[in-house]
Simulated scan of single mutants.
Amino acid sequence: MDAVKAVILAAIQGLTEFLPISSSGHLVLPQTLLGWEDQGLAFDVAVHVGSLVAVVWFFRRDVINLVSAWLVSVGRREHSTDSRLAWYVIAATVPAVLAGLLFNDFIESHLRSGEVLAATTLVWGIALGAVDRYSSHRRNLVDIGLGLALFVGFAQALALVPGTSRSGITITAALLVGLNRGDAARFSFLLSMPIIAAAGSYKMLELIESDLAVAWDLLAIGAVVSGVTAYLCIRVFMNWVERIGMMPFAIYRVILALIIFAVISQ
């Protein structure tokens, strides 16, 4: 992989990591249409680091408030709105972590086909559009309880299946339980931090145990490009989400699914 490919793949990863449009669905296209090689484990780690830095930096005030409140709740047993939200984020992360430990090998062996990728991109795109159209959008994030947080967390576990989109499935679940679009997106982004950190750490362990040669210059490019594009993507998305809703992303997913179906049928 050369520097140009590194920039393109990192930009795709950064732009699609947090939008509800399936990053795996986009990354398969340059590999299939252009014959590009898989980006590799080390590059995966780098772009995950870039994405994580971007989302933490954008929500840094939320992160500071949640972590501080959580520490107070642990140390002094004093609970607040922020401490409860922090506990909900932790609880909602557990299903995805357990699902990854239990089913990752099965998914890697049996669900990495183009047909699965296209089908999940299509099905969950339609679901996103339907939920956005018909849900109430009346609840705020302060109204969420442990049960609703776990519901979104179990939905996040489905994102292990290629084409589902982690942000797409969590936003869909959050909208389904009545959260407004802005808070649904915010909760999805808060949930992304521990799960991206966990996935990146797991990949890092794999990289350490492997004998792969590391091209540090390409990794640096990948981390920086992924981080910058992810940050800009989050900023635009959070500014626009209440105005444009999720329907444009749902329609885009349907079109993407049809393109993938056409590509794999050749």
Score class of each variant (00 low, 15 high):
residue 145 G to N: 12
residue 122 L to T: 03
residue 112 R to Q: 12
residue 203 K to D: 12
residue 111 L to T: 08
residue 103 F to D: 06
residue 118 A to F: 10
residue 142 V to A: 13
residue 122 L to C: 05
residue 109 S to T: 15
residue 123 V to L: 10
residue 94 V to A: 12
residue 123 V to Q: 03
residue 139 R to F: 13
residue 94 V to S: 09
residue 91 A to G: 11
residue 86 A to H: 08
residue 175 L to S: 04
residue 187 F to N: 02
residue 159 A to R: 00
residue 116 V to H: 05
residue 120 T to Q: 04
residue 90 I to V: 14
residue 184 A to S: 13
residue 133 R to H: 14
residue 135 S to N: 09
residue 142 V to F: 15
residue 184 A to P: 00
residue 204 M to V: 07
residue 106 F to P: 10
residue 131 V to W: 06
residue 102 L to T: 12
residue 189 F to R: 02
residue 157 A to F: 08
residue 188 S to L: 14
residue 109 S to K: 15
residue 111 L to Q: 04
residue 197 A to H: 09
residue 141 L to W: 10
residue 174 A to H: 00
residue 168 G to M: 04
residue 109 S to Q: 15
residue 182 G to Q: 06
residue 94 V to Q: 10
residue 146 L to W: 06
residue 195 I to C: 05
residue 145 G to Q: 12
residue 205 L to N: 15
residue 112 R to C: 14
residue 198 A to C: 10
residue 92 A to V: 07
residue 136 S to T: 12
residue 200 G to M: 13
residue 178 G to H: 06
residue 109 S to R: 13
residue 177 V to H: 02
residue 133 R to C: 10
residue 165 S to V: 05
residue 161 V to H: 03
residue 115 E to L: 06
residue 113 S to K: 14
residue 145 G to V: 10
residue 153 G to P: 06
residue 205 L to C: 11
residue 164 T to C: 04
residue 176 L to V: 06
residue 138 R to E: 12
residue 147 G to I: 15
residue 114 G to T: 07
residue 151 F to H: 05
residue 183 D to P: 03
residue 148 L to A: 13
residue 143 D to W: 14
residue 97 V to Q: 14
residue 91 A to V: 08
residue 203 K to I: 09
residue 95 P to C: 06
residue 99 A to F: 06
residue 103 F to M: 11
residue 163 G to D: 01
residue 206 E to N: 14
residue 99 A to E: 10
residue 131 V to Q: 04
residue 92 A to W: 01
residue 179 L to N: 01
residue 202 Y to A: 08
residue 154 F to P: 01
residue 147 G to H: 08
residue 154 F to I: 01
residue 131 V to T: 06
residue 104 N to A: 14
residue 154 F to H: 04
residue 91 A to K: 07
residue 94 V to F: 08
residue 154 F to D: 00
